[in-house]
Computed example of a mutant assay.
Amino acid sequence: MIESTHDGNPLLTWGGAPHFRFRDLLHRLFSMANQGFLRLEFLQMATGSILEFLACDVLEVCLEEGGKRYRCRAEAGEGGLRFYSGLDAGDPAQLPDQILASVLRGQFLAASPFSTRAGSFWTSDSSRPVLLRENGRHDAQAHSVVIGGDYRSLAFVPVPVDERIRGVLHLGSRKADHFTRNDVQFFEGVGETLGVAVAFQAAQWALRERVKELDCLYGIAQVSQRDGGTLDDQMQAIVELLPPAWQYPELTCARILLNGRCFDTPGFQETPWRQEAGLVVAGKLRGAVRVHYLREMPAFDEGPFLQEERNLIEEVAHQVGLLVNRGEDALAKAKLFHMLEQRRE
């Protein structure tokens, strides 16, 4: 439980510990956000750190972005923390998920005293009836519901990120009357901190991904400008540029298929987790550029692949097509020139 100080600021003391514990949490969150982890990896580590800090029995972080909902859950038990993470819309038939979704969208579902101005909802005993309003409409008829479940005390706190990403902290304790209004207001401060860390992580991740993409395309441009290499040499050099540009380089292999010939990265394997773009040369389909993951990975925009990776593989295929076309044009011109020279002789 949070112990408010004499000046009423719960951020200065938590559980009798000095405020440097909160500063330590800040440092840990932003340090993790700056280390290049993927969204779910970052959320899992952040969830464990916040649960340890708040000493609840369960804590879930839910983020919604672009129609996708990321959920990471940590539960404290005798064997330590247990984690669940993934892309999951939840079960709308379950009251906790209904409340979570409404807090996520900034709707006030509960009548006072179970909500705050910041949009949080909590109950000190989930076995007692709670007065709710459907869809957050204040003109709707309120009705009593019992949330129930294993956790007697529940809190749902907004995590403000930006206009694209919205989030919720879902906290639970097996003890009744574990959360107070002061606790929930403190949780809102933690939620705001997490929101800033999420925005920072998203910006850092996007920057790293763009750098990887630019490195790949710059590498292709360099290959196309080399003198003396054969087309086969160029295709092999380009295919080896692809894995480092995808999310999981160590689990990525690639193939360029051109005119029935394959140019593969070392250790290439055909797997079900494939992203492909057609290789068009002078308006004709002549092959494909393929990227495979060696094992199943979390789902994103296109199976385990990102929309940005779809854009990249399409651009790679386009650049390879231009390279092949230029090479064939140059070869055709050289042959024509040679024929003209022979006629003059």
Rank of each mutant, 00 (worst) to 15 (best):
E270W: 13
F114L: 15
H19Q: 12
V157C: 00
L340C: 10
F200H: 14
M45I: 05
A89D: 15
S49D: 14
F268Y: 14
L207H: 14
E314I: 04
N311D: 08
Q225V: 01
R137Y: 14
D125H: 10
R23Y: 03
Y293R: 04
V58I: 12
R39W: 00
A299D: 09
R28C: 03
Y248L: 06
N135W: 06
L154G: 06
I238Y: 07
E3M: 06
R210N: 13
V291K: 12
R255C: 11
A17N: 14
D57K: 11
V198H: 12
P10S: 05
L12I: 01
Q141E: 14
Y84A: 08
F30A: 00
L214Q: 15
V211D: 11
G66T: 10
I238P: 10
R210A: 06
V159L: 07
D215C: 05
D301N: 11
L217S: 09
R117I: 04
G327Q: 07
R21M: 01
C216Q: 10
Y248Q: 08
A17R: 15
G77P: 13
E308Y: 01
P129Y: 04
F179L: 04
L59C: 01
W14C: 01
P266I: 05
D7F: 01
P160I: 02
D215E: 13
G80M: 13
L322D: 07
A237E: 14
F300G: 03
E64H: 09
K175S: 10
S173E: 12
G8Q: 07
L194H: 08
L12M: 05
D125Y: 04
D97F: 05
Q307N: 03
K335L: 05
N9C: 00
Q94G: 04
I165L: 02
L214G: 14
P266S: 12
Q185G: 05
Q225G: 06
F179C: 02
R133C: 02
L340R: 14
L257Q: 14
T265A: 09
D183G: 11
G15E: 13
S49W: 07
T116V: 00
L131H: 10
I50E: 14
S127G: 12
Q307V: 02
